[in-house]
Each structure stands twice: as structure tokens, then as C-alpha cells.
């Protein structure tokens, strides 16, 4: 391949003419150099482009405080995130089935927090708090906190699923699908939850992203990130005390 045969034209060989050697180019150094360059590019570059998740936070101004929490009691669901850490400060992981999950705990309550404390011991008598974890889907079934949110937003999810089928069957384009899905998500005639996400001081950044992810997966359009307050801390403390969970 790398040699050029020089064919003799004219047929007759002249006497005394030099025998023409095929020209052979050795490509080995070229390959060596290319390999080096490839190695350089492979080590110095990144192929994975990061993704982003857009969020909008409420303004810090006081005026808006009053307008907050005006959502219907029946629609509101508050998630309080926490992450279990060992004494070294590392996130605890646990095996469920064949998957390893970091131990992010989601405390949640619907509507208003229960604050009744009859004997004034600082422990709320009946904290209406429940605990779930981020479990994603197992065998096509929603699990953990996703199941809870899925049930709350069932009407929207059903409609979006129909639209998605249309899109997959090429009845509508992707843009149309996105637009229609957005309309469904914001359709006020359907019962939709309002999710308030609060993260405790120990909660890892990953758990916050997981919570925001759940909003996207469950097509929840109304959610907000809020700061944890005294009531929330008291609720969790009470829950832990009543269920004999050690409090650090």
C-alpha cells in the first residue's frame, strides 16, 4: 500500500538501465506521533457535558412572606429533606434490592403541620409526619416518595402519558408535545399538588437535586424551595422521639 510501483512503459528494457526499486514509505513514526497526540487529547479533554436544572427561588424580600402559604390546605405537601451521615460525616448508603442508595430521608406532611403539645414537653403529640426515601422505579412501579407524589398528581400524569403516546406514535411533534404537556401541567381544573421542599442543614446537595428531579418526573409544576423553620425542626424531633430514633 505504501509503495508506489513504477511500471516500465515501453516494454523493452534498455540495457544498463537501473532497476527501479519500489518506493516504500515507512509510516511507523507517523503512527507513533498520532498515538501520542490521541493520548494527549484523550487525557486533557472532557466529553461529558454537564447538564443543568433551572430553579427559581422566591425573592428574599419581606413583602412576599405574606403572600406565601396561601395554597389550599388539601393541595399542599411539604417535603423536609435530611441525609443520614456517619460519625465521620460521610453519607450513609444502604442496599435495597440490588441497588445502592445514599440514605436521604424525606419527611413529609400534607396540609398544615400538627403542632398540638398538650403536656408542654416540647414534643408534639401527634406529628402528622411520615417518612419516605428516594427509590425511583423498581420494575416499572413507582416507589418511595415518587409513589406518593405520583398519586397526588395522577390526573396530570395520565393526560401527559396520553400525549406522550401520541408523540411516540408520531401524531404530534416533540415541540407540540412539550407545549401541550406544559398546558396540562398548569391546568387549574385538575387536582394538582403544591410541593414545598425544605432541606435540613445536614441534607446533602444531592438530596435537593433528587427532590427537584421528582418534581420533573412527576410533572409537578407548582413547587418551591423554602427554608426550614422551627415548626419543621420540632416536628422531626417529635417524630424521632416518638419512634425511638436516636437524635444526634
Amino acid at each position: 500500500m505504501a509503495q508506489i510501483e513504477q511500471s516500465d512503459k515501453g516494454g523493452k528494457k534498455k540495457k544498463g538501465a537501473q532497476k527501479k526499486m519500489p518506493i516504500h514509505v515507512d509510516f511507523t513514526p507517523m503512527v507513533d506521533m498520532n498515538m501520542l497526540l490521541i493520548t494527549f487529547f484523550m487525557l486533557c479533554t472532557t466529553m461529558i457535558k454537564s447538564q443543568t436544572l433551572s430553579i427559581a427561588l422566591p425573592s428574599n424580600e419581606k413583602v412576599e412572606q405574606e403572600q406565601k402559604n396561601k395554597t389550599k390546605q388539601s393541595e399542599a405537601i411539604t417535603l423536609i429533606l435530611d441525609t443520614e451521615r456517619d460519625e465521620k460525616g460521610n453519607v450513609v448508603t444502604e442496599m435495597v434490592g440490588d441497588k445502592v442508595y445514599p440514605k436521604h430521608i424525606v419527611y413529609y406532611y400534607e396540609g398544615k403541620p400538627e403542632v398540638a403539645d398538650e403536656n408542654k414537653d416540647g414534643i408534639i403529640d401527634n406529628p402528622n409526619i411520615k417518612v419516605e426515601y428516594f427509590r425511583g422505579n423498581v420494575a416499572g412501579e413507582t416507589q418511595g416518595i415518587r409513589k406518593i407524589l405520583h398519586e397526588r398528581n395522577e390526573k396530570v400524569l395520565e393526560k401527559v402519558a396520553v400525549l406522550k403516546q401520541d408523540w411516540k406514535a408520531k401524531k404530534i411533534t416533540e415541540d407540540q408535545f412539550q407545549e401541550e404537556a406544559k398546558k396540562v401541567r398548569n391546568d387549574s381544573t385538575l387536582t394538582r399538588p403544591v410541593v414545598i421542599i425544605k432541606a435540613g442543614p445536614n441534607a446533602s446537595y444531592e438530596s435537593l437535586i433528587s427532590a427537584l428531579d421528582e418534581m420533573q418526573i412527576n410533572q409537578i409544576s407548582r413547587y418551591q424551595i423554602d427554608n426550614i423553620n422551627g415548626t419543621d425542626s420540632a416536628l422531626i424531633l417529635s417524630y424521632k422521639t416518638l419512634n425511638n430514633i436516636p437524635v444526634e
Partner: peptide
């Protein structure tokens, strides 16, 4: 931990950068 991230988020809110993205 969120308490550390919260510093940054809170500062952004104070600066009225209410919309931003998180890298994932």
C-alpha cells in the same frame, strides 16, 4: 450539606438573582 449550599443560594436571592441553574 445544604447548610453550606444555602449560603450561596441565599446570597443569590439577596442579589435578586432568583432564577439560576444547578449543575448536574
Amino acid at each position: 450539606p445544604y447548610s453550606t449550599i444555602h449560603h450561596v443560594l441565599d446570597n443569590l436571592q439577596t442579589l435578586k438573582f432568583n432564577k439560576f441553574s444547578l449543575m448536574t
